[in-house]
């Protein structure tokens, strides 16, 4: 099995010189290609911090993150941004689409940053929006889409760069049951059919129920790492 994420002995301490807060404490995390994993835990347990560190958005105080054999802790800031562009897809709780661009332009934007040819961009935009069931919303702006539809566009955008894995921070938190189920169906399908690796940070039982692996964080430490079925109530 190909290792995609290898986070080794990750610690993150805020305010180290005054009142130190250990957001993440000596975490080891190993994710293989094709995993569909939920990172769960109470608020303040360090889920988002760990996700940010794995995504190269935040630097660990200790430890290192190796993605596909590349130690991202050693990359310079500009290299790290470029690495994110080509290797990591992000889905945020608040959708975070660019409001002045249409659905298709939002998806195309990432490929434009990657300097992909126009023909490829156009083809992939159509493919991705079709795969999330939004073929008829190509030229619609985010404000005219429902929350669920916006999050599906965000998923299409995350996939547009052909990333190694997708980090999704509370992707269903703002969605109703139907929209959340549709979104999870799409992500599960992509995971199953294209072996795309997903790592969710979530409180949402609907996500936990679908995850094949659930990692529980408490006070910045991994308390449990097992198959989802084993921790269901």
């Amino acid at each position: 099995m190909q290792t995609v994420i290898d986070a080794h002995n990750i610690s993150k301490v805020y305010n180290p010189d005054t009142i130190p807060v250990h957001a993440v404490n000596s975490v080891h995390l190993h994710l293989n290609r094709g995993e569909f994993t939920a990172l769960v835990g109470p608020s303040g347990s360090g889920k988002t911090t760990l996700l940010n560190i794995i995504g190269g958005l935040d630097a660990p105080t200790e430890g290192q993150v190796v993605i596909n054999g590349i130690n991202i802790s050693e990359l310079k800031p500009n290299q790290l941004i470029n690495f994110r562009l080509h290797n990591i897809g992000f889905v945020f709780q608040a959708f975070n689409l660019i409001p002045v661009l249409t659905a298709s332009e939002n998806v195309e934007f990432i490929m434009l940053l990657q300097k992909r040819p126009k023909a490829e961009r156009t083809r992939r935009v159509h493919e991705l929006l079709a795969s999330v069931g939004l073929s008829d919303k190509l030229n619609v702006r985010p404000s005219q889409l429902s929350g669920g539809q916006q999050q599906r566009v965000a998923v299409a955008r995350a996939l547009a760069s052909r990333p190694q894995f997708i980090l999704a921070d509370e992707p269903t938190a703002n969605l109703d049951s139907h929209s959340a189920a549709t979104l999870l169906d799409i992500m599960e399908k992509m995971n199953r059919e294209e072996a795309i690796t997903f790592l969710f940070s979530t409180h949402d039982q609907r996500v936990i129920d679908r995850a094949r692996r659930v990692i529980t964080l408490v006070d910045g430490r991994i308390e449990n790492d097992s198959a989802a079925t084993q921790i269901r109530h």
């Binding site: 500009n78 562009l85 990432i110």
Partner: peptide
Amino acid sequence: REFGMLNALGMQ
């Protein structure tokens, strides 16, 4: 927030 998001997605 938007600038942060664009940077996170890989925009220099």
